[in-house]
Simulated scan of single mutants.
Amino acid sequence: MDKINRGGHDTTMGWNTAALFVHKLPAAEVLAALPSRYATEPTGDSVQADGATASFPGDRLYTAERDQWCQVWDPNSLIAFEVDDLSTRGALANTRVLAVLFASVSSSYAFWLYDHGSLARHVFFADGAPVAESGAPLPVEGEVSLPVWGPDEDFLWAVIREVTGTDYTQDARYTVHADPGATGS
């Protein structure tokens, strides 16, 4: 499998971020469904994919809407751990939600897939081995060629492509959202 080129850097440089992919809901509705600690407003800025998927600056969210999927990228990587609550109540319980966690520094990768409020699949890998798992594996999980160290960024992007039809596109634009009270927004 080819490494994903992120702004001139391939994935061997590491990914440390998290994202939600929400089907058929606009970004405004997805952001409104998040807990108040994620309260942000658009800054008027946009960034390319390498900025939205980077691990800094933190304390921001980046959104895009493509092919009926809203993407919310969180450099603080906290949003992925909210997915259980978010996907079983409110607006997100009535659609399909995929959350992904990229933590290459700790060699941890995870995804959660919810269909209309029910967990369909979850797997969390640490150091190449599954440490938490629920639901039947997705077909793509058996189709991805894994490196000797186990699942990595390419594995997660294969899952993202399979579930959402979305791929990493460097020139895609993402809206920057920041805490309205934060300086430098």
Rank of each mutant, 00 (worst) to 15 (best):
T43W: 02
A27H: 03
T11I: 11
P35W: 02
V123T: 13
L78C: 08
D50V: 02
W15V: 11
Q170R: 10
M1G: 09
T63N: 01
F124G: 05
G7I: 05
D84Y: 01
T183G: 08
L20P: 02
D67C: 04
S55N: 14
S106I: 10
A110D: 13
T43I: 02
T183Q: 13
T11W: 00
T53M: 07
S55Q: 04
A19Y: 08
D85V: 00
F124L: 15
A27S: 15
P42C: 01
V72F: 05
G58D: 12
A136T: 15
A80T: 11
L20H: 04
A64N: 03
H122D: 04
H177F: 04
R89G: 03
V47T: 09
C70L: 07
P35F: 02
D59I: 09
A80D: 15
I79A: 11
V83T: 13
D10L: 11
R6C: 01
Q170C: 03
W69F: 09
L138W: 08
D67R: 13
D167V: 08
Q170K: 10
Q71H: 00
D50K: 07
E162V: 01
H9L: 02
A80F: 15
C70N: 08
R37P: 04
I79K: 13
S145L: 12
M13R: 11
S77L: 06
V123M: 14
Q71I: 08
S107A: 12
T43N: 00
Y168F: 10
A132N: 15
V100M: 11
S107T: 02
D84I: 07
A80W: 15
S134F: 14
A129R: 14
Y114K: 03
S46E: 14
T17M: 11
A172C: 06
V140H: 11
